[in-house]
């Protein structure tokens, strides 16, 4: 259990949030021209990093808004929180 500083609501318990997986995976601009390998890469393949990970979260039991987070997955320490559309902070 850890606390998450929602950019809209402030600090709340992690159980109020839903993790949305790896962030900054861009949907292919021309889906019809994608090969099966490229689709697999987009849909299924994940970095699954042990260390600093950029990820999406949703404050599902709060404002229900999506936002981004930088977290160290080896110890669950949150490094930064930023809104959707904003540039990720530099490491």
């Amino acid at each position: 259990m850890f606390l998450i500083n929602c950019p809209f609501c402030g600090e709340r318990e992690q159980s109020e949030f839903k993790a949305g997986g790896e962030a900054h995976i861009v949907r292919p601009k021309q889906p019809t021209e994608l090969s099966d390998d490229q689709w697999a890469e987009y849909l299924f393949m994940r970095k699954n990093i042990k260390g600093i990970q950029f990820e999406r979260w949703n404050h599902i039991h709060g404002c229900r808004k999506w936002f981004n987070m930088v977290r160290d997955t080896s110890n669950d320490e949150i490094k930064a929180v930023y809104k959707m559309g904003e540039k990720p902070p530099v490491k």
């Binding site: 259990m1 318990e13 992690q14 993790a19 699954n48 990970q53 997955t73 080896s74 110890n75 669950d76």
Partner: peptide, 11 residues
């Protein structure tokens, strides 16, 4: 959520 911390949430 993805984590390698070998501890989970209390809830």
């Amino acid at each position: 959520y993805v984590s390698y911390s070998q501890k989970g949430s209390h809830d």
